[in-house]
């Protein structure tokens, strides 16, 4: 059968609202019986010091050592948008650059294009060159080999431009405890789920999020 007809026969599979999120990629909340202040990174053996005071999304790698003191809430809207660029409202082109990932961020970012999420309906697109990009999505720890490529990509982009740090490694060095990359938009998670990514991207271009 013709592929077009095959596609039509499958029907619309795009989700109106986020429906199925893996718990250990969402916000964590203190659920313990003792005082929250009494619980620290040391006492919970948190490998990235993501506890205290409270839960620090940027550092968390979801190792679950803090469980059951901290438990997932199911809230995926963890992205922090420090700068909104309204000019990208209708068309927002992303150039992803992997400076040292494990590959999981790459796959999750790729999956925002899956039919369930469908980034294009939000006016978000991928581009294969920084020359056409509005935002640079950087993921992974900053490795020696990729530092120069990252700089070149940033310089190749036209103004105005946003830098979006995706995943714990880029934001805080993650489990590898390396340097932190300065960014306009920060998307926590290890890796962040497609919902978290899309929500932050929509907010970065002046939307309400998803």
């Amino acid at each position: 059968m013709n592929w077009f007809l095959k596609g039509v026969r499958k029907g619309v599979r795009t989700e109106k609202t986020p429906s199925d999120v893996a718990p250990w990629s969402t916000e964590l909340q203190f659920k313990g019986i003792e005082e929250e202040s009494g619980v620290t990174s040391e006492s919970l053996r948190c490998p990235t010091s993501a506890i205290g005071p409270g839960w620090i999304a940027e550092r968390c790698v979801y190792c679950r050592r803090c469980y059951p003191h901290y438990q997932p809430t199911g809230n995926h809207r963890m992205g922090v948008v420090k700068r909104v660029e309204k000019r990208f409202q209708r068309s927002f082109y992303l150039y992803p650059i992997d400076v040292g990932t494990c590959g999981a961020c790459n796959t999750e970012l790729r999956l925002i294009a899956s039919p369930q999420h469908d980034l294009t309906r939000f006016g978000i697109f991928f581009t294969n060159t920084p020359r056409h990009a509005d935002a640079l999505i950087v993921m992974g720890i900053m490795t020696k080999g990729m530092r120069e490529a990252f700089r070149r990509a940033y310089e190749a982009m036209p103004e105005p431009k946003l830098v979006i740090a995706l995943g714990a490694c880029a934001i805080s060095g993650g489990i590898f405890q390396t340097e932190k990359i300065e960014a306009d938009v920060v998307i926590p998670g290890c890796p962040p789920s497609p919902y978290t990514i899309l929500d932050a991207l929509i907010r970065a271009k002046g939307g309400r999020g998803w």
Binding site: I97, R131, E148, A149, R152, E155, A156
Partner: peptide, 12 residues
Amino acid sequence: IRRSEVWNSGAP
């Protein structure tokens, strides 16, 4: 006119 380096997939 804005002059910038030629983009060669991140390499010189």
